[in-house]
Design a protein around this nucleic acid. Structure first.
Ligand code: FES
Ligand code: FES
Lengths: 143, 143
DNA sequence: AGCAAAGCCTACTAAATTAGTATAGATAAT
DNA sequence: ATTATCTATACTAATTTAGTAGGCTTTGCT
């Protein structure tokens, strides 16, 4: 139960592209340098994000990546869903993992906890992270 | 980002003990048989649960495990925290994983999403799982 | 007393997942 | 043409998770 590096790096990648890609494509070499992340790994992470229409790519020299949508339209939930495997709980994907699956009362608990996790991420967009200190999601109070 | 088998099995273990341990200790051999889980794995899972005061053990023949507290006092959050590693997000535990950690805006997002996950589990107790259909936690509506 | 049934504990092994690398190819600006 | 960039697949290494093994401890029973 650990958030993978893919998701963590993916969020930072998008944020970096959002910050520097206003007027020109941002190439991954830049991102790798600024964020101190391995280029080849970033390349892998960028692909599903592009395929899903979160990033948009420009090939060739002076190419790079841009956000495919405004940052207000990109939720962290979408990002994490693309980069983690879809399902957080094994037995929800593969019923054979639990005997008498129809009656297992824990099933629903896991389902709901995972939902709560994604609901939280759904409420946070890239835009919220670009303007720290005035974000909409700072109102929860807890640390 | 997968809930581990330890947590899934641990919840089923506790539930089984809650169901069958009203008047006598439940031994793990029974649980392993009823739940179709590996005995030796259950033994490992039971230990931290006992050390944390969730289970209580009786040694010797006719021994086994009992709940150390009423099921209304055992939240799933406590169980999962004991069985998963404590921290869901690596960079919250080890700041060196992210450069300029003080300014990384994603940090807080992960923190809050993890919090939402555990908050949900905190609101569900073993007792809720023992009486399916009349549980307090069914009111969220979503599937 | 002594046996057997349980839990207790540590160490080990195997499987699966994650993290990261390598290599080859496609596209387009210069 | 050359070169910078993305694209795609395949591979390897590291780490984590899942599960096993073996021996020790406690205690009820005869
Ligand atoms: S269905 Fe998931 S543990 Fe039973
Ligand atoms: S502090 Fe976690 S990704 Fe930057």
């Amino acid at each position: 139960m650990k958030l993978s590096a893919r998701s963590r790096y993916g969020a930072r990648l998008l944020l970096d592209v959002a910050r520097h890609g206003q007027n020109r494509p941002v190439h991954l070499t830049e991102v790798a340098r600024r964020e101190e992340l391995p280029l080849k790994f970033l390349e892998q992470i960028a692909i599903p994000l592009r395929q899903a229409g979160v990033l948009k790519s420009v090939r060739g020299p002076k190419g790079g990546y841009l956000l495919a949508r405004p940052p207000t339209e990109i939720s962290l939930a979408e990002v994490v869903r693309l980069l983690e495997g879809e399902e957080l709980i094994d037995c929800l994907a593969d019923a054979s993992l639990c005997h008498r699956v129809g009656t297992c009362p824990t099933r629903r608990v896991w389902q709901e906890a995972g939902q709560a996790f994604y609901d939280k991420l759904q409420s946070i967009t890239l835009a919220d992270l670009l303007t720290p200190g005035q974000g909409l999601w700072e109102d929860t109070g807890d640390v």
